[in-house]
Measured scan of single mutants.
Amino acid sequence: SHFELRVGTITLHFDNISEELAEELEKLAKNGVHADEIRRWWEEWLK
């Protein structure tokens, strides 16, 4: 499923992401983690 995450002024787009993972990314964003860090985390997870 597709997921969009708003982090400050940036909107990150994720394809084929589980609800659980989407929730984890939302938690990171709410805790003030920068969009670049979240994207890096996601790319690492995909490997």
Rank of each mutant, 00 (worst) to 15 (best):
W45D: 03
K30W: 05
I38G: 01
L28T: 02
T9F: 08
L12V: 04
H2E: 08
F3A: 01
T9V: 08
E19N: 13
F14R: 00
K47G: 10
G32A: 09
E20S: 11
E44G: 05
T11V: 15
I10Q: 07
A35Y: 07
H34F: 12
A22H: 04
A22R: 14
E23M: 14
T9W: 02
E37I: 09
N31Q: 14
R39I: 15
G8L: 05
E4T: 00
H34R: 11
S18H: 05
I10E: 14
E24M: 12
E44I: 07
E26T: 15
E26F: 09
W45M: 10
L25Q: 00
R39L: 15
W42K: 01
H34D: 12
L12G: 00
L46G: 13
L12M: 09
I10G: 05
I17M: 05
L25Y: 02
H2I: 06
K27W: 10
E19W: 14
V7T: 03
I10A: 05
H34N: 13
E4P: 02
H13L: 08
E20Y: 08
K30S: 14
D36N: 10
N16H: 06
L12Y: 04
D15F: 12
I38L: 07
D15N: 08
S18N: 09
I38P: 01
K27L: 11
E44L: 07
L46K: 11
G8M: 02
V33N: 10
A22I: 14
T9C: 12
L5K: 03
L21K: 05
E37L: 10
G32R: 04
L28Q: 10
G32N: 08
L25R: 00
L21W: 05
W45G: 04
T11K: 03
K47W: 06
A35L: 09
A22T: 05
W45E: 06
E20I: 11
E26Q: 13
K47D: 07
K47Q: 14
H13P: 01
E24Y: 14
R40N: 12
N16C: 04
K27Y: 11
E23Q: 15
A29L: 05
R40K: 13
L28Y: 05
W45R: 09
R39F: 14
E37W: 07
E4S: 00
E24P: 01
F14V: 02
L46R: 07
W41D: 02
K30C: 06
R6F: 04
K30R: 09
E19D: 13
V7A: 03
A29M: 05
L12H: 01
W41R: 13
T11Y: 05
A22Y: 11
R39T: 13
L5H: 00
G32I: 08
L5W: 01
K47H: 15
E23K: 14
T9M: 09
I17R: 00
E23S: 13
L21D: 06
H13Q: 08
A22N: 02
E23W: 13
E23V: 12
E26K: 13
L25A: 04
R6S: 15
L5M: 07
E4Q: 03
E24L: 11
A22P: 01
T11G: 01
E43P: 02
L28C: 06
L12I: 08
E43V: 08
H2R: 05
F3H: 05
T11D: 03
R40G: 08
